[in-house]
Design a protein around this nucleic acid. Structure first.
Length: 351
DNA sequence: GCCTCTGTTCTA
DNA sequence: TAGAACAGAGG
């Protein structure tokens, strides 16, 4: 009963959280265009492509200041673009350098730059050679990926300061990258649980401190049968966890819509996770998992007795005088009495 | 609906 | 023979 209430309560909390989050996003979504009134249509369009759901006000301001460059990284490119030579000229310079000596191949402009600036310059040149051939929209996921453009640090700070913005970027990430994000955070949060051989990673996800508290993992946190809350605390011997329906863990069922991000996708995103989280916690059996051997039991008493096999505890001692045998299971002790001491007891009881 | 107790059954 | 798990009964 308590478990059920916990699960339900978690679901309500999760929904409430989603609702609040969505309200927050909606408010920002509708408030955002107001901050762009003085911008041209092209600016607004570019900014929306880059981040249509900027929930943080600073993010809006940040992109507002340099709206023409939609991705989070382009300021250096923007500043240095006028001074960059064309690709044909670069090729010509390269050809000329090959023809002439290496020492004499430096142009006056390159000699004036610092080494780091030269690296940035070449990176920018490489970037430009790619950006010119690719669609602008394809550039967004790249900038949101783990390897942030080396342009500015404010870009990274703006992303880290916006959980939902980061979530959007996750959708643009490769599946293995998403798994890394999902799996790395919970491990840091894991606590007070001994070694779990071949334990499902999903058992760690419930403690994810990530902004995805509304994920199935976050919901399962409340339903977790924490040993601290159990009267029988056997040194973290066992725990309850939602059923193996989540086992083995499956990849995050995030709908991949990198470039078609809009409000409807937002709702679909959150609702999809919420629905899966509800279906991920069936009130079925085997909810009590031994942390030592990962064996599942349907009853806490069964798990408690099972824990005796790991601890070697044998609380049930044979009451027969001269028989110091102890058993971990009461029924086994009684059986022992019946079998071994029946000859001595039966005549007494019978007579 | 969940728990403990108890008995039964399987296995080494 | 004992360890271990499962299932029914009752609280």
């Amino acid at each position: 009963m308590q478990l059920a209430s916990m699960v339900h309560g978690t679901g309500r909390d999760r929904e409430a959280h989603d609702h609040r989050q969505l309200q927050h996003q909606h408010s920002n979504f509708y408030a955002q265009p107001q901050g762009r009134v003085h911008h041209s249509h092209a600016d607004v369009t570019t900014a929306l492509v880059s981040n249509p759901y900027a929930s943080h006000h600073q993010q809006v301001e940040y992109q507002y200041q340099r709206a023409p460059q939609s991705p989070p990284s382009p300021p250096v490119e923007e500043v240095s673009k006028p001074s960059l030579p064309s690709i044909s000229s670069l090729l010509g310079i390269a050809d000329g350098e090959r023809g002439s000596s290496e020492t004499a191949g430096q142009s006056p402009r390159q000699s004036q730059q610092q080494p780091s600036q030269q690296q940035q310059q070449q990176q920018q040149q490489n970037g430009i050679s790619i950006n010119h051939s690719e669609n602008r929209s394809d550039q967004v996921p790249q900038n949101f990926g783990p390897t942030i453009s080396p342009s500015t640090t404010s870009t990274q700070s703006s992303i880290s300061a916006q959980p939902y913005y980061l979530g959007q970027s996750l959708n643009n990430m490769e599946p293995h990258q998403q798994r890394q994000h999902v799996a790395s955070a919970p491990i840091l949060k894991r606590h007070s649980i001994p070694s779990q051989p071949s334990m499902s990673p999903y058992t760690t996800s419930p403690y994810a401190p990530s902004p995805y508290a509304s994920s199935p993992g976050g919901a399962s946190t409340a339903s977790f049968y924490s040993p601290e809350n159990h009267p029988y605390t056997s040194a973290g011997m066992y725990q309850q966890r939602p059923l193996p329906s989540n086992f083995p863990p499956q990849p995050m069922p995030m709908p991949v819509a990198p470039n078609s991000a809009n409000a409807s996708n937002l709702w679909q995103h959150h609702h999809y996770i919420s629905a899966s989280s509800q279906a991920a916690f069936p009130q079925s059996q085997d909810r009590y998992i031994c942390q030592t051997c990962n064996k599942a039991f349907s009853r806490p008493s069964s798990l408690r007795i099972h824990s005796h096999s790991h601890t070697g505890e044998k609380p049930y001692k044979c009451p027969q005088p001269g028989c110091g045998k102890a058993f971990s299971v009461r029924s086994n002790m009684k059986r022992h009495e019946r079998g071994c001491h029946a000859a001595a007891n039966t005549p007494i009881t019978a007579s």
